[in-house]
Amino acid sequence: MPFFLDYMILIFLASVGVIQLAALKNGLKGIYLVRPSVLNLALALALTCGSFIWFFTSEPRNLPDDTLGLDGNRQAGFYLIGSVGAVVFTLLVTSLLHRVYNGKALPSNEAGLDALRSSGYATALKGAFIRLWKR
């Protein structure tokens, strides 16, 4: 597999894990990938630590950044793609899961990230657009 793909997989998986850890810390139940907090914690730790362990043990990673490895700019670019991808993936999947678990729930009235404590992302976003429309 090309090196940049390995790097993107590391970023994507670790970012999904870190977002879940942050969601657990902040109580953002609307973006939990797994409902019981303990299982979600286990999943988040497995994704974060596992991706690092896989990346650094599967192949030698001290590669010259101007030939086989990635230079700083390409690293930053791939990081951005991987982490934004992880955010989008999390929001899409958890919105679907929230819909399956809760049906057509009413959107939260809270602003910003706080809305994700009780609403799925799609529901919260829908609520934001409705409030904007009614203004």
């Binding site: 590391l10 970023i11 870190v18 690092f52 690293q75």
Partner: peptide, 13 residues
């Protein structure tokens, strides 16, 4: 080139 930069960037996330 990867461990610490990724760790720092994930900390920001």
């Amino acid at each position: 080139d990867y461990f610490t930069p990724v760790t720092l960037a994930l900390s920001l996330l």
